[in-house]
């Protein structure tokens, strides 16, 4: 492995640079995935059948809580990567850990939200609107869940092996993923919840 010391650790080997580029391309595919979900959401948003509409079931409090939790976690993963660049393993681990805790809290609120929807009669089978709502939110939530496990594994590897070209590369790619989920959430917040409640 040739290590280029003029670059940050996560970019320092050829394979690392390939992985980062590959992940950006993957994020391009993810954008298409969520774009398709949003397009389908806009098509089906009025297909409420006999079920409730968005305005009838959305609650602002949990949604705001989720938004604040996820946006803050995006900030802390940024701090973690910053600490990583400075070579401060301890600070990096702390911020990385805070990110995962915030992600877990987000997921908890989202689960509460789903239970609430089913409780008020807006389950997956109720109408096309509820199906696409729960699928869009659920796809995002599944990504967060996957991220929690993935992030935990990386955290453990950084803890054990320190800041190596390999672990920093994984952490950096994870941060890209996490920021991406945050961006998707901003779209969900604006175009699903705010638009739905107006």
């Amino acid at each position: 492995m040739k290590i280029d010391h003029s670059l940050p650790l996560e970019y320092s080997t050829e394979q690392n640079r390939l992985k980062i580029l590959g992940f950006w391309i993957f994020l391009g595919a993810e954008i298409m995935l969520f774009a398709t979900l949003f397009a389908s959401y806009f098509v089906l948003v009025n297909g409420t059948g006999n079920g409730p509409s968005g305005a009838e079931i959305f609650e602002i409090t949990p949604v705001l809580a989720e938004t604040i939790l996820l946006l803050t976690s995006s900030f802390t993963i940024g701090l973690a990567i910053h600490a990583m660049r400075l070579g401060n393993k301890k600070a990096m681990l702390v911020f990385f850990g805070i990110t995962l805790v915030l992600g877990l809290a987000f997921l908890g609120v989202e689960i509460y939200e789903f239970v609430h929807y089913v409780h008020v009669g807006a389950g997956l089978q109720t109408s096309a609107f509820t199906a696409i709502l729960l699928t869009t939110l659920g796809t995002h939530g599944a990504h967060v869940t996957f991220g929690l496990f993935w992030g935990l594994f990386i955290l453990l590897q950084v803890k054990k092996n320190g800041l190596t070209p390999e672990t920093t590369n994984k952490s950096f790619i994870f941060s890209l993923y996490w920021h991406f989920l945050d961006v998707v959430w901003i779209f969900i917040f604006s175009f699903v919840y705010l638009k739905g409640m107006m």
Binding site: E30, L33, G47, G49, T126, A128
Partner: peptide, 28 residues
Amino acid sequence: PVLTVALAMGTLDRLFGANFFTSNNGGM
């Protein structure tokens, strides 16, 4: 990814009773 989403919706319709593509309950 578009196919991924379409197939996932079709699966939800067929196996979980969702209404994405049905003729009632707002499906299209």
